[in-house]
Design a protein around this nucleic acid. Structure first.
Ligand SMILES: Nc1ncnc2c1ncn2[C@@H]1O[C@H](COP(=O)(O)O)[C@@H](O)[C@H]1O
Length: 266
DNA sequence: GTTCTAGAAC
DNA sequence: GTTCTAGAAC
């Protein structure tokens, strides 16, 4: 466990509270004082124990995400009054996946290493997110040691989607994700969904902005890290192009109609 | 006049 | 990431 995590420090404070109780009873305090102090300490222990058991509900999620959980519980914000809210602040929209993975009712699949949930705003008939249970904030945090985990994430996603009514799927990462917490997209290639609305949506799943899981794993094998892809942002404003026949299409409504007939799942 | 996109949101 | 809407494009 992380040495600095609130979880660990709370266990320490719990232990020290017990220690204090023993210490107090040996001291020559009046009986009334002893009882008052002991009761106060017992209340403290109960509160700490409750906090720890709530944190344990978060399962195998790391000390860092427990810290975020505590921050949100205690409404800790790191932005000053009148300042825009920091992206890393608990409660900011970009941290929404932390709450999603913590909610077991959203799990479509879960094991010791990963969780699979449905994408809340699916951009196709089938759209899942695969998240590791150990907190990995972003692609930059990845190194060679993560290859077995990333391979497993792909394997489980492929396994989950093999019985879907649409057979063509892609499994990959956005080059520049908006949401914190590493997540693999598993998305069917029909792109038939009301939540697919904008050019940015389309280009994020159909240009090189979408980095196949295999490609990402190859990057880690060959370079030991994920290549810098900050220049990929320009791909989001490219002209709309059908992912099947590659013709350019003038706008989103036309594209959505076009792919309904152009995409064939065989 | 209607459809569609792009940018602000404290 | 989404929602909302002003104004560009048709
Ligand atoms: N609370 C949420 N639960 C599940 N999926 C979400 C949530 N918020 C956003 N998403 C999806 O997460 C994905 C994040 O995209 P990106 O960060 O670009 O990889 C998008 O496909 C969103 O639709």
């Amino acid at each position: 466990m992380d040495r600095e995590s609130p979880c660990r420090s709370q266990i320490y404070s719990c232990k020290s509270a017990v220690h204090c109780l023993k210490w107090y009873s040996k001291k020559t305090l009046s009986n009334t004082h002893k009882i008052t102090h002991s009761l106060a300490l017992l209340l403290q222990i109960t509160a700490v124990t409750t906090a720890i058991s709530r944190i344990r509900l978060l399962g195998a999620i790391s000390a860092n995400s427990r810290r975020n959980f505590l921050m949100s519980k205690h409404k800790i914000v790191d932005s000053g009054k009148g300042e825009p809210q920091s992206k890393k602040t608990a409660g900011h929209w970009s941290q929404g996946l932390y709450a999603a993975v913590s909610d077991e009712s959203l799990h479509v699949y879960s094991d010791d290493d990963l969780v699979i949930i449905k994408d809340k705003y699916p951009k196709a008939k089938y759209h899942y997110l695969v998240l590791p249970k150990v907190k990995i904030a972003n692609l930059k945090a990845l190194d060679k040691s993560h290859i077995p985990l990333l391979t497993k994430m792909y394997d489980r996603a492929a396994d989950l989607t093999k019985d879907c009514s649409v057979k063509k799927f892609r499994y990959g990462y956005h080059a520049i994700p908006s949401m914190g917490l590493l997540h693999l997209h598993a998305i069917s290639q029909d792109f038939n969904s009301p939540s697919l609305k904008t050019k940015k949506h389309w280009n994020s799943f159909t240009t090189d902005y979408f980095v196949d899981s295999h490609k990402l794993i190859e990057m880690l094998k060959s370079h030991g890290k994920v290549n810098d892809m900050s220049h990929h942002s320009k791909l989001l404003s490219e002209d709309l192009r059908c992912h099947v026949c590659k013709t350019t299409i003038k706008n989103m409504p036309t594209l959505k109609t076009h792919i309904q007939t152009c995409f064939k799942d065989s």
